[in-house]
Simulated scan of single mutants.
Amino acid sequence: MQPKQKSYFLIVDLEATCSDDGSIPRQEMEIIEIGAVMLNRKTWEIDSEFQQFIQPVRHPRLTKFCTELTSISQQDVDQAPQFSEAMSRFQDWIYPLFNNHIFCSWGNYDKNQFMQDCQFHNVPYPFSSQHINIKQEFSEYLGVSKKFGMAQALNHLGMELIGTHHRGIDDARNIAIIYKYMKTQKLNKLKNF
């Protein structure tokens, strides 16, 4: 007997503290934005969205590189809640309306960053062990070994990037567009087979 299909794809994109000079090592990066959308598996439409800035504590001052890359300002994060409160808000959005979901992201970075931040802040990891790496699925869909960045994938499909690249909520919306395209094309091929 097959397990019951999940009703939603929870597509998440995170932005985190970063530097181009090594002043913030990978293991000290912290989430500064959660962008998420709930993609309905039946309609292939986004049913709900979530966006939250987070105040970093390890490196509270954003680097110039980080601000230029993400367009997230120091004021955005200074006025934001810290990680545990932000995660509480995130889970209040997910549950109970969307508890039948699969956590998805472009690559494994977002999953690993959540795990790292949850451990550092002593907050339980909020997802099941199931995770879909859409970046990997996209390469499999094309039948290539090359790994595409999200913007490259849109370009490859002849689609325009909507919003601001490296903003969590905009990237989550764009990833949802790619995933919808892949899944509906696959379904159409199966119907016409």
Rank of each mutant, 00 (worst) to 15 (best):
P3L: 11
P3D: 08
Q5F: 05
K6N: 04
K6R: 13
L10G: 10
V12S: 14
D13C: 12
D13H: 05
A16T: 15
T17V: 09
T17Y: 00
T17G: 07
C18L: 05
G22V: 15
S23Y: 11
S23W: 12
S23E: 15
Q27T: 01
Q27P: 01
E28T: 06
E28P: 04
M29N: 12
I32K: 01
A36F: 06
V37C: 15
M38I: 08
N40P: 08
K42Y: 07
I46D: 15
S48G: 11
E49Y: 01
Q52I: 03
Q52H: 11
Q52K: 15
I54Y: 10
P56F: 12
R58S: 12
P60S: 15
R61I: 14
L62Y: 12
L62V: 14
F65W: 11
T67H: 03
S71M: 09
I72F: 08
D78M: 05
Q82E: 11
F83A: 11
F83T: 12
F83V: 09
E85T: 10
R89N: 11
R89W: 00
F90I: 04
F90A: 05
Q91R: 14
D92R: 06
D92C: 08
Y95F: 13
P96A: 08
L97C: 02
N100E: 00
C104K: 01
C104T: 03
S105M: 00
S105L: 00
S105P: 07
W106Y: 08
N108E: 01
N108F: 02
K111Q: 09
Q113S: 00
F114L: 13
M115N: 08
Q116I: 11
Q116F: 04
C118F: 07
Q119C: 04
F120I: 09
H121N: 14
H121G: 03
V123K: 03
P126K: 03
F127D: 14
F127S: 12
F127M: 08
N133M: 02
I134G: 06
K135Y: 02
K135H: 04
E137L: 07
S139K: 07
E140N: 12
E140C: 05
Y141P: 06
Y141H: 12
L142S: 04
L142E: 01
G143K: 14
V144F: 14
S145I: 04
F148Q: 03
G149Q: 13
G149R: 12
A151Y: 07
Q152L: 05
A153S: 10
A153L: 14
A153G: 05
L157E: 01
L157W: 06
M159V: 03
E160W: 01
E160I: 05
E160T: 13
L161W: 02
T164L: 10
H165D: 13
R167W: 03
R167P: 02
D170H: 14
A172Q: 02
A172V: 00
A172D: 00
I175T: 15
I175E: 14
I177S: 15
M182I: 10
T184D: 03
T184I: 10
T184L: 02
L187T: 01
L190W: 08
K191R: 06
K191P: 01
N192A: 12
F193R: 11
